[in-house]
Amino acid sequence: MSVVSETLWAVARGLPLTVGIWLASVATGLLVGVLVACARHFGGWVVNAALATLVEVVRGVPFVVQAFLLYYGGPFIGLDLTPVVAGWLALSVYAAAYFSEVFRAGFRAIPAGHTEAARLLGLKTNQTITRILLPEMALSVLPALANLAVILIKETAILSIITVPELTFTVSGVGSATFAFAQTMAALALSYWLLVELTAWAARRLERGIARATLGTA
């Protein structure tokens, strides 16, 4: 097989897992991130301080170290995870920390009166969050969330170090076997860039959709 076809084949094998882990981590990270931001915004200072510390730890340690610690250190505390699960978990935690800060900014940007009006009308906190605050902030936090999602695509490459057979793992394998490092790395770069462009395009469409739904304008 030529280097080109081997590289293409490696991309085809690695891409689904890269996209899969990325989407799963973004979804988990968004969910946990929203919950963390809500807890910090509405939960009083003890909860806020505890979660703030956690967020600081996650943001303060390089992702490659976190992935290593979880995968190779996990078994010492009874967490014996497969590479894929460890990768998904590590990336989700990492994503949640950053997503939570974006949502927190979103909460803070909404005038307190919008929440007070809801409270006086009898809405519960969870109803206020889901029906008022999150839709209200959606449009303004979307660019920051999309930005993070794009960064996370590229962070998945680090998972190759804990032997997750994703894009970087499969493609750099071809490089090592054939010594065609430049070609394989170029293919890798192109693949990630393509994913990023797709994401950016999807985010723009989503932004228009949210604008239509929340502002009544395109």
């Binding site: 009166g113 919008h114 007070e116 009006a117 809801a118 008022i132 839709p135």
Partner: peptide, 11 residues
């Protein structure tokens, strides 16, 4: 309560 800043939900 009716507020000075209306506090309507913009979305």
């Amino acid at each position: 309560m009716v507020f000075q800043q209306f506090n309507l939900w913009p979305h």
